[in-house]
Amino acid sequence: MYIRHDDRHQVTLTLNGSERSAHAESRTQLCDFLRHQLGVTGTHVGCEHGVCGACTVIVDGRATRSCLMLAVQAEGRRVETVESLGEMEGLDDLQRAFRDHHALQCGFCTAGILMSCHEFLRRIPDPSEGEVRDMLSGHLCRCTGYTGIVQAVLAVARRRQNHREEEQ
């Protein structure tokens, strides 16, 4: 693939399960592309240098900073954003746990945190508090002091674990 610096390229990707496409320049950040071209504004931009974690989305199953990725690099990939979460018009268990544990205040960093947790719990279904905190250390939250977030993730992990055990 070659895209001239002043070309606009048609980028096609799978967004939250549906194929979507729009134009991007080679330099267009993935976060800008998602928000302003594809209209999924749930992903937020907080620093544009990969530290705050607000823009985290899942690309091909991996939590990724969308400010450190180009739209053209997402060509042909599966991208999941916060809009993909939830069950039947409602909140999923992780989202509900965030609400119940007061794990958000302004909510600006929340989308990125949810996406990290989403991947993390898929990978590590039974994490320790230390592991949860380590994973969350890739996100900055200025409102909550993190306690509610840690509690929410641990509670969901426990609940899912119990579910699995019941099913067996």
């Binding site: 999924v40 749930g42 992903t43 937020h44 809009e83 979460l85 965030f98 007061h102 929340t110 989308a111």
Partner: peptide
């Protein structure tokens, strides 16, 4: 628990940008 949360958790918040 907060009435604000559902929209924010679903990415439906309406921030300035």
């Amino acid at each position: 628990s907060r009435v604000e949360d559902e929209a924010l958790l679903r990415g439906l918040g309406r921030y300035a940008d």
